[in-house]
């Protein structure tokens, strides 16, 4: 597999499993109902099949991340690991009919730009270290 293809597949896989995890969490919360500090609520959480979807998602994300980091630069990898914000936002509107107000979209735009800046800074750090070595 070429390097570009490896990155593309790896980053897409990471965004995909992270998105899956968040959707599973939300579906599990439909089964538990609104949070109350009781053992009944916790029992409902453990009984929800979606909670195991979320656990599977976390484990897959961990292994995808570790595989990706063997080859990929940490900056873009860092950004990709947080860009599930965008996919989760779109899917929560599509699947759960959540309202995406102008404020939410403005907030999401700022957050994504911020993540891109952070990943640029990480990439610069790694290049600097590589030059010193």
């Amino acid at each position: 597999m070429s390097r570009a293809r490896f990155y593309l597949v790896g980053f897409s896989a990471l965004v995909l499993v992270d998105t899956w995890t968040q959707l599973s969490f939300k579906l599990a919360s439909h089964q538990t109902g609104e949070f109350v500090m009781t053992t009944a609520w916790l029992k409902a959480a453990v009984a929800s099949p979606w909670i195991y979807g979320a656990i599977a998602g976390y484990l897959s994300a961990f292994f995808t991340w570790m595989t990706l980091l063997k080859h990929a630069p940490v900056g873009p990898a860092f950004a990709a690991s947080h860009l599930d914000v965008v996919t989760v936002l779109m899917l929560s509107a599509l699947l759960f009919g959540e309202q995406l107000s102008a404020l939410k979209i403005a907030g999401a735009t700022c957050i994504v730009l911020g993540i891109v800046l952070l990943s640029l800074s990480e990439s610069k750090d790694v290049t600097a270290r590589a030059t010193v070595d």
Partner: peptide
């Protein structure tokens, strides 16, 4: 954190939770 995140999602929309959850990045830094 796993249980607390589930609790948060049971109280507010998922789209809002992932957005305000991004503050983690800032606090950790």
């Amino acid at each position: 954190e796993f249980a607390v995140w589930l609790a948060l999602l049971s109280l507010i929309p998922l789209s809002q939770a992932v957005l305000i959850g991004s503050i983690n990045i800032v606090v950790v830094m």
